[in-house]
């Protein structure tokens, strides 16, 4: 029997969140004496054997030419084939947009219980903690089925190195013709995808205009962070919509979230309150965000942020 981990990649690199899912899956596999099978839809250029470093005992690849990755039906058929071939009893995804496309379909097809947004490992009885109420609570969910599917929230489980020498094999399987046609695909540039960034620097209306984002970007760069923004900023087109975090935008869970000039409306908090450490910089001492923050600076962003940048440059050499 085996634990299957669905691995995603971008720009010839494995996604960090997929390596987290692999580390997570490997722990389940070890506890249950199972194989750790990493499955990758690959363009042939990926260093797939490297997945052994994070515990994969087998890497199964499938050529991207054979599948329409926007078609949940094709993906579900393909994964069902892997489940059958590898005698899979646990399927682990990182809780990405791809997982949201495939996992529910797979759950029905395999009659496999699904927990999305998991924040910890399953107990011996198959109980998994997951994030609910937009990050304001957790629930403990029991999976009652023979095959179990979990999608793990990014940054919820740390990458563990646990070197194995994996067997690498290519899966040969024909998916049926897709009835979904891809007309255009636009991938946004940016070094660190916001959803899986460990650190995020975010700006709000307090920054007064898009021309003032230079210091946000500089601070982010120094910290190795991604940039984000609040809803009014995205709505005013100061920043692109994919940077909008909050109830209606992206929900993120970085280790560090620095909010600059954001008052902290409940809708914004819903997207960021899973962050481990929150820093708030706001000139209004009454800003509600301070109540949810770990560290705060009451001050004008235009004075504080440049000083902060200087301080980092000094301490980091």
């Amino acid at each position: 029997m085996s634990v299957l981990i669905y691995i995603e990649h971008h720009d010839g690199k494995f996604k960090k969140s997929s390596l987290e899912a692999l580390s997570y899956g490997h722990v389940i596999a070890k506890e249950n004496n199972m194989a750790t099978v990493a499955f990758v839809i690959s363009d042939g250029r990926l260093p797939v054997a490297d997945l052994g470093k994070y515990g994969a005992t087998k890497v199964l690849t499938y050529s991207h030419i054979g599948i329409n990755e926007s078609d949940s039906k094709s993906l579900a058929s393909l994964l069902c084939e892997v489940v059958k071939k590898e005698n899979v009893t646990w399927i682990i995804f990182s809780n990405t947009l791809t997982a949201k496309l495939i996992a529910p379909r797979l759950s029905v097809r395999l009659k496999a219980g699904l927990v999305t947004g998991a924040t910890g490992l399953p107990t011996k009885d198959g109980v998994v903690m997951r994030s609910v109420f937009s990050g304001k609570a957790f629930s403990a969910v029991k999976l009652n089925t023979e095959i179990k599917i979990i999608s793990v929230n990014p940054n919820a489980y740390l990458i563990n190195e646990s070197p194995e020498k994996p067997e690498v094999a290519e899966l040969v399987y024909s998916t049926s013709a897709s009835t979904i046609k891809i007309k255009e695909r636009r991938l946004s540039p940016g070094d660190i995808p916001l959803a899986e960034a460990e650190r995020v620097v975010s700006g709000g209306r307090g920054l007064k205009g898009p021309e003032n984002w230079g210091m946000i970007e500089e601070l982010a760069k120094l910290l190795g962070a991604a940039t984000a923004c609040s809803r009014p900023v995205a709505d005013a087109n100061w920043r692109p919509h994919h940077e909008h975090v909050g109830q209606t935008g992206l929900a993120i869970s970085p280790n560090l979230y620095i909010a600059i000039g954001i008052s902290g409306a409940i809708q914004h908090l819903a997207g960021v309150n899973r962050s481990k450490t929150i820093v708030v910089i706001n000139k209004d001492p009454e800003a509600p965000f301070f109540k949810s923050a770990d560290y705060g600076i009451v001050g004008d962003a235009f004075e504080v942020v440049p000083k902060l940048i200087e301080a980092i440059k000094t301490t980091h050499g």
Binding site: K111, F290, D294
Partner: peptide, 21 residues
Amino acid sequence: LTETMAFELPPAKAGVKLIPA
């Protein structure tokens, strides 16, 4: 296929530590 056993609130924040501007 699943059963919700219980809910849990996240641990309360210790409160904000303010740093001079």
